[in-house]
Amino acid sequence: MSTAATTTSDVQTVFVPSPETLGAVLAPGARPPRPSAWSASVTFGWRAMLKIKHVPEQLFDVTAFPIIMTLMFTYLFGGAIAGSTDAYLQFFLPGIMVTSVVMITMYTGIGLNTDIEKGVFDRFRTLPVWRPSALVGMIFGDVLRYILAALVILGVGLILGFRPDGGVMGVVAGIGLLVVFSFAFSWVWTMFGLILRSEKSVMGVSMLVLFPLTFLSNVFVEPSTMPGWLQAFVKVNPITHLVDAIRSVMAGSPDASSIMWTLMWSAGFVVVFGFLTMYRYNRR
């Protein structure tokens, strides 16, 4: 057998390790100090952005899905519930924005689950960085998707005739509240992403949680038309508080109580599910 027989096809890339160059890169340089928790999280957020850059198809979920939801429900319920689609839209747009974005949060769990399957997380977990930063950074990337989805829905709404009285400030504040809540709610999915075995089961559980949570709320209709037991659930549903809060700020008359409830729920999700997530993350 000649040497040529074992040569790989692309001859120009044949690599001959040289002790000198390897030696130069191995010489221990000064070790930089450990990055701060914030800087590590932002770096992981940058990774999420790079992944969007390389796999832009993933943005389909956050653009097409919200557009379809908005159009579908506006024309489906508009006439029946409010008499006209135009009137319904003023009530409905903040709600559908919440529904769509909260539904998109489940991709956090699915993404984490597939990411962990692949083994990159093993390397992240052997790095001496603030432990939650890999997950926080991942959710930072997702927050970008939430903002994008919210803006897409706002755009569709404005075209269809949504005219918020709160003006630009009101809309920005509303989207801000939505992003804060979604960031917090994402921790529910990181937990499931770590506990459940496959991407499919994460998806299944997400649907099981998300459908009742978003539909049994004040998103589509006023709760006063519902039976008492359902009203009781709707009243404590965090989605109801969030929708109330966003409606109020977008309408230019902020409702302190629902805003406070929204922020409390958000803090609760981060504390409880953040803790459960990190417990699982450290013990895998």
């Binding site: 796999v55 692949k118 083994g119 990159v120 093993d122």
Partner: peptide, 11 residues
């Protein structure tokens, strides 16, 4: 360096 992929394949 794990047995399987230990860098991000998409990057």
């Amino acid at each position: 360096t794990g047995q399987y992929a230990s860098v991000d394949e998409d990057l």
